[in-house]
Write a protein that binds this DNA or RNA. Structure first.
Lengths: 344, 344
DNA sequence: GTGAAAGCGCTAACAC
DNA sequence: GTGTTAGCGCTTTCAC
């Protein structure tokens, strides 16, 4: 019922054309004014900006990204939103804004079947033009990605590529296990992480190595799959604690697993650390707020997010040295570890 | 050094043009084939799809969204990635994929100054054409947003608009406080949430109401700001616990605050719940894995994320009844509450 | 069944 | 200083 000219084309959407019309200038002039290019008269600039303000106009990320070569947006692709990836996100957010990038988080939401290769699909869609570069958290496949610069955090086995960030999983696992040995534990179990990730394998290796160095024979029944997840690890712990010769300590591959172990131990009526010592890995925030607070290997998760952004930023600026980064993990002894019961 | 025609234009980027060239058809034909439109010969279809597969082509979300009216992408805008918003994210992810939408999470990363109004800016940039609709978590301003359909979760005070999802904060707070009263507590403190959010105000009101109904006089010194945050709430708790007549129980406005309170209590050498009872609100995952597990009001966070997506989906399909949704909160008694010490 | 032409909102050359 | 022209990758009429 209303004429085509007395309202914006697309209802509710303010475009650069609307601004231009109201300011009485051409579209390119508005573009220049907004982007601070030279060649706009002060009076025009002022007028345009006031109209922009009035209309609440913001340039569409989509349209500009299609035209520009760089969009100033970084993408971070995660399989799932859990404490680990969320901590990375926080760091990445901070670093991005400091570096002048916007940040887009994209969860593949792949339930079941297509869980493998999610990052490839997501990347193709976004890398079109939306994001300049991407940070991929715990990717599943070793597909060589070439479309845009990519930094991987905790990569898949086989992806020892240069633009990766890893913590010192092997060394950390050694330290964790050694800590338990030093306390007097001899029967130490391990809850394994996600089998396809390098980190999980290295943590298991470090655990074994520490045992062997101490002259302890690793027992196959003492290693269970936790998949880096709470529930699965709780289940694994329940199994471990009902063994005939049950372990007095557990090194869990990450904090979520450790918290799962703690929960399972409690359900069986055990007290941590009196009856069972537990060490985690990561130092997610929840590790500090559990009771007892978790003894764990501190990974500077937010710092890793920051580093990833810096690496990506360097990559985008044409710098070549994407040296793989390894961050050392530091043991923090909190309340979940103590000498084994039989030494009391 | 290499000729301009023996490689794709933009290095590393596979476009629809590349597919068309390799398949020996025109660009529109490829488009039709990909999108399953009628009017493509079976042989052509097969050939095109095989090239698509070979090249690993995925249609650019950006380019297609610019042309299409609907993009099939939902945006979820959060101020920060913390357990609360992350749980919502999970639910939203699931629901989106079930409804056939992709999901984009966007964190405003506004540190300091421009924290107010972050959602407006983000929305303008994305609403351009990238996303069909948005879910905004705990927005800060009451700006009327008209560009695209929006659903708000836990809105700002004054935003009693229709497309909002709230939990029954008032009722929940009453129940939480009543639970403590029933246990025999008489000196009950409250750690307040983010002052500008309706939920925070209602929880404080519910707390007061329950006290008054029980004939207890609310004490001003017993209410402190926690800002829905761990650290700030720990600080507030430290203050509360050093009062001359210190409270025997705390109702915290959310779980992060409750966990902060628990941490502070421990640092002062108190045992929860023997020396201090604590009730939270939300039931974030960490509430279950803390020791003792937190007594709290269960909000189905993932369910809220799901509902938000459904509301948004309805809105996008032109349905009108965006009735404000209120979800009731249910008390779950875990290990952080007990009768006050003087009743032992 | 297929391709040529137009255009989404915007920015980058280049005229004027 | 400013506007005209062209084009990013894609989808959509509409001829052929």
């Amino acid at each position: 019922m209303s004429g085509p000219s007395d309202q914006p084309h697309s209802p509710g959407r303010v475009t650069i054309g609307d601004v231009a019309r109201l300011a009485g200038v051409s579209i390119p002039t508005v573009s220049k004014a907004i982007n601070g290019r030279y060649g706009v008269a002060p009076a025009t600039l002022k007028r345009v900006l006031s109209v922009v303000d009035e209309l609440g106009y913001e340039t569409s990320i989509v349209a500009s990204s299609l035209r520009r070569q760089r969009t100033n947006v970084l993408g971070i692709l995660v399989a799932e939103f859990e404490p680990f990836s969320v901590e990375l996100l926080k760091g990445a957010s901070t670093a991005s804004s400091e570096k002048g990038y916007e940040l887009l988080a994209y969860s593949s939401l792949s339930r079941g079947k297509s869980a493998i290769g999610w990052e490839r699909r997501s990347l193709s869609r976004l890398a079109g033009t939306l994001i300049d570069g991407a940070i991929i958290v715990t990717p599943t496949v070793l597909a060589p990605i070439e479309s845009i610069p990519v930094v991987m955090i905790d990569p898949h086995t086989g992806q020892e590529g240069s633009a990766t960030i890893n913590s010192d999983s092997f060394g950390g696992a050694q330290i964790a296990t050694q800590h338990l040995i030093d306390l007097g534990h001899r029967n130490i179990a391990h809850i394994r992480g996600r089998g396809d990730l390098i980190s999980a394998r290295l943590r298991e290796d470090g655990y074994r190595d520490a045992l062997l160095r101490a002259g302890l024979q690793p027992r196959p029944e003492n290693v269970r799959d936790g998949g880096y997840q709470f529930r699965q690890s709780a289940q694994a712990t329940q199994e471990l604690l009902t063994l005939t010769d049950r372990p007095t300590a557990i090194f869990a591959a990450n904090d979520m697993s450790a918290l799962g172990a703690m929960s399972a131990a409690q359900e069986l009526g055990l007290t941590v650390p009196r009856d069972l010592s537990i060490v985690g890995f990561d130092d997610i925030p929840e590790a500090r707020s559990s009771t007892p607070p978790l003894t764990t290997l501190v990974q500077p998760l937010q710092e890793i997010g920051v580093r990833a952004v810096h690496m990506l930023s360097d990559l985008l600026e044409g710098e070549d040295p994407p040296q793989p980064t390894y961050l050392s993990a530091r043991l923090v002894v909190r309340g979940s570890t103590a000498p084994p019961p039989d030494l009391y």
